[in-house]
Simulated assay, not measured.
Amino acid sequence: MKLFFLKLFTWWNGQTFGTQLWTWRFGELVGEDEQGNRYFRTRGRKIDPTLGFERRWVIYNGVAEASRVPPSWHGWLHHTVDLAPTEETYKPHEWEKPHIANMTGTPAAYRPSGSTLASGRRPAATGDYQPWTPGS
């Protein structure tokens, strides 16, 4: 019963009941990424008359966070490329790093040294800084 109400009222936790119904009725599974996110398009690659192109969407595995979409799928979702990564032999370049989610706003966020939120003490000023004072 709890899962039913979560699907009915929360949009940030996977998919809502409406999205599940829409996907079941009109969606076609295109593929899945390494994080378990599933990607869909309109069944039969039908062009939406309102938009002028096919609809594409993602159902997140867990919390809906847009930064969890890898670059290979991002291009397909936003119609930058026509072929999904599952329809072509996508091979990342050796200089590409593995995808990681945006951790801003979480305890795992990047905090450079000198930040008031970083652990430890802020380094002392090196002496090359002179504060401005009015009239000087």
Rank of each mutant, 00 (worst) to 15 (best):
W73Q: 01
P107S: 02
G135P: 02
L8M: 15
Q20F: 07
G27A: 10
G31K: 02
L6T: 07
N61F: 01
P71K: 01
G62C: 03
M1Y: 06
T86S: 09
L77W: 05
F26E: 00
W73M: 07
R45E: 15
L51S: 10
M1N: 13
S136I: 05
P123N: 13
H79N: 10
G135C: 05
P49N: 10
A108P: 00
K46G: 07
T16Q: 05
N37Y: 10
L77Y: 03
N61C: 02
D48Y: 13
P92H: 05
K46F: 15
A101S: 08
S119L: 15
D48H: 09
G127W: 15
G31C: 04
G75E: 09
F4M: 13
W95S: 09
G120D: 13
T16R: 07
G62L: 02
T116L: 13
R45I: 11
E34F: 07
H78W: 14
A66L: 09
P85I: 10
E32P: 01
P92A: 08
S136H: 09
N102A: 02
G114H: 04
I59E: 01
D33W: 02
E34C: 04
Q20M: 02
G120H: 11
R56Y: 03
G18F: 12
V58I: 01
W76A: 08
P70E: 00
R121M: 15
V63F: 04
A101H: 06
W76C: 02
R68E: 07
W76L: 03
P112G: 07
K91G: 04
H93I: 04
H79Q: 05
P123K: 09
T89D: 09
R111L: 15
Y39R: 05
L29N: 04
F4S: 10
A84C: 05
G27I: 03
Y39V: 05
I47Q: 10
R43A: 14
V81D: 11
T116V: 14
G18Q: 08
R111C: 07
T19Y: 08
E88G: 05
Y129Q: 09
A66S: 09
T50L: 11
R43D: 14
A118D: 12
P123C: 12
E96K: 01
R68G: 08
T106S: 03
A84L: 08
V30S: 05
A125M: 15
T80V: 12
P112M: 08
S113Q: 09
Y90M: 03
T89A: 11
T10N: 15
S115G: 11
N61M: 03
T106F: 03
R25E: 11
T50W: 12
V81I: 12
